[in-house]
Design a protein around this nucleic acid. Structure first.
Lengths: 141, 141
DNA sequence: GTTGCAAATGAGAATCATTATCATTTAAGC
DNA sequence: GCTTAAATGATAATGATTCTCATTTGCAAC
């Protein structure tokens, strides 16, 4: 738990219990993308006494510090993901909410070229494909 | 105004005053992407007596009918755009909110291939590049 | 190890965009 | 023109997120 402690310090954040616990939930969850409410529920179930407001506050701080990425998918609520991996885009099943990731270097390169040709400097981008996944457990099948 | 009337009928919607007026605002605005609140304000200023709830209701119906596309950019509110043009993606300036459009057939094709290779059928996709535009009137300059 | 104090927290109120409710009005076939 | 189901406007309700503020806590200096 010391390395997490350090991560927070480097981000200019004091190493408090709620922040350490939220990091732990993000690291230990089998799902990579979690909503604020889901994280809150996981903490409550684990016996931690945190407030929902704290979860939102901390996630926003983590985002500002670059520890976490916030996604606004079409569901209307934000989901968060640890920012310790390479960049990737998403494909989301509209039926069951399943999220998969992909990277396509050709797409990346074309995006850079499009921004350049229009005089934009890229800060970020979001590519989300929405569809139906046809898995075993997808309610749409 | 008769052709609009027809558009609505074909979409299975009665040609009511609010619906015709909202269509008119979308067609006549110099901005292609409008929020519900902006459309509401435009109507009020034009002297129309509509409720905000009606604007939301009608836009949702238009979306279902394929007359309009809803985008969820990072701003937290939805923006709407007439769906009478070819598909395109967006590049958005984070400083001034400017929205430009683009199409890249190579990107489109790679997306289709990615979905196929993962067993997804594509319903839709959203590609938004966020950056800084460096225009004359962009506050960031 | 105590102490002091700014930073962080929890609980709940507040906000913002959007949706639901419901009594009233209206489009459009007869 | 009349009827009736569909549509509307006003407003209450909702869901996600943010704010407020009294209380608690991390941690640096003693």
């Amino acid at each position: 738990m010391d390395e997490k402690n350090l991560d927070l310090r480097q981000a200019g954040l004091r190493a408090t219990t709620p922040r350490l616990r939220i990091l732990a939930v993000l690291e230990e969850s089998d799902q990579r993308h979690l909503g604020a409410e889901e994280i809150y529920m996981a903490l409550i179930e684990a016996g931690d006494d945190v407030g929902l407001a704290t979860v939102y506050r901390v996630l926003t701080q983590f985002e500002a510090a670059g520890l976490v990425i916030r996604h606004n998918f079409e569901s209307g609520q934000s989901v968060f993901e640890l920012d310790n991996r390479e960049h990737h885009d998403h494909i989301v099943c509209l039926q069951c909410g399943r999220v998969e990731e992909f990277v396509d270097e050709v797409i990346e390169q074309h995006q850079r070229q499009i921004a350049r040709s229009r005089g934009f400097s890229i800060a970020d981008h979001s590519l989300v494909i929405y569809g139906e996944c046809r898995r075993e457990n997808c309610p749409h099948r």
